[in-house]
């Protein structure tokens, strides 16, 4: 299974800190700008990149990521171009794991085998596909694992003890714990509840547990990071992109730096997380 991901989490464990997983929407607001953002993320402190595949009907996303997807599609982004982003990124960076995140239809439309072959060749390490629960594993999860692409599952507060083994079966890379019932970009949950949930999942698996939904600031990142192996930040990052654009949605000179400034701060939070846990 793609070694890059496992090595990254092993290194983080050795460093004794949680990872920072940053989500960005591929092609938002245009291909070149989002490539610039992607290339700048590792330097700003991102340990894993989640690369959003825009979809016309993002049913589990809040307004920030909905709008990011609309901007990307309006800018001509397609699944093929999102894979191109990864290819370009890989020319300079062989170490940072890339996880594609989105919805199934564009993948199904491309054809599962074609998609997986291209994803591997583009240097993709894992997939998060929101509308493919374990009941639909035959669609993409099993073929992906067979080809050596990690399939990362979402666990949620509604995933009870009885269901956890089902969710964790066929999961690899890491487990993405969605810290609340809801859509992306909602309010931060109580960190103590998150800690308990992470421990509950850890009783069932040795995989790293990364927590997302609601993390917006360095303080959030530190609080959540104290309890988890990784912290996922998404809506706050795409909101930075949105805030940097011109009135008609075009990138500006400070679009990339708006993202890196936020990510550097989040990285500081994550790096002090274990310290916070020890206090």
């Amino acid at each position: 299974m793609t070694a890059r991901m496992d090595k990254r989490f092993a290194d983080l464990k050795a460093e004794g800190r949680p990872g920072l997983i940053t989500y960005m929407m591929g092609g938002d607001p245009d291909f070149q700008t989002s490539l610039g953002i992607m290339k700048a993320l590792p330097g700003a402190g991102a340990d894993v990149i989640e690369l959003g595949m825009p979809f016309s009907d993002p049913m589990a996303d809040g307004p920030a990521i909905q709008l990011a997807g609309q901007r990307a599609l309006a800018g001509g982004q397609t699944l093929a171009k999102t894979l191109d982003l990864a290819r370009e990124f890989r020319k300079d960076d062989q170490d940072t794991p890339i996880v594609l995140m989105g919805y199934y239809n564009p993948i199904y439309n491309m054809g599962v085998e074609t998609f997986l072959d291209q994803a591997l060749e583009a240097g993709i390490d894992g997939l998060i596909v929101v509308d493919l629960p374990p009941e639909m594993d035959d669609e993409l999860c099993i073929p992906a694992l067979a080809k050596g692409v990690n399939f990362i599952r979402l666990a949620t507060p509604t995933t009870d003890e009885k269901r956890l083994p089902t969710v964790l079966r066929n999961t690899s890379g890491f487990v993405y714990y969605v810290s609340m019932n809801g859509i992306t970009g909602s309010a931060l949950p109580d960190p103590s509840l998150v800690g308990a949930a992470v421990q509950r999942i850890k009783a069932h698996t040795d995989l790293p547990i990364c927590v997302g939904f609601g993390v917006k600031t360095a303080d959030h990142a530190r609080a959540i990071g104290a309890a988890a192996d990784g912290v996922v930040v998404g809506s706050a990052i795409v909101a930075q992109v949105a805030g940097s654009l011109t009135a008609d949605g075009k990138a500006t000179d400070h679009t990339v730096s708006a993202v890196t400034t936020l990510v550097s701060g989040l990285a500081t939070g994550v790096r002090s997380a274990r310290l916070a846990a020890a206090e």
């Binding site: 009941e135 509604t158 009870d160 019932n181």
Partner: peptide, 12 residues
Amino acid sequence: GGRFVAETLMPL
């Protein structure tokens, strides 16, 4: 057909 929904909804 099938059940193409987010994990949050699956138990329900």
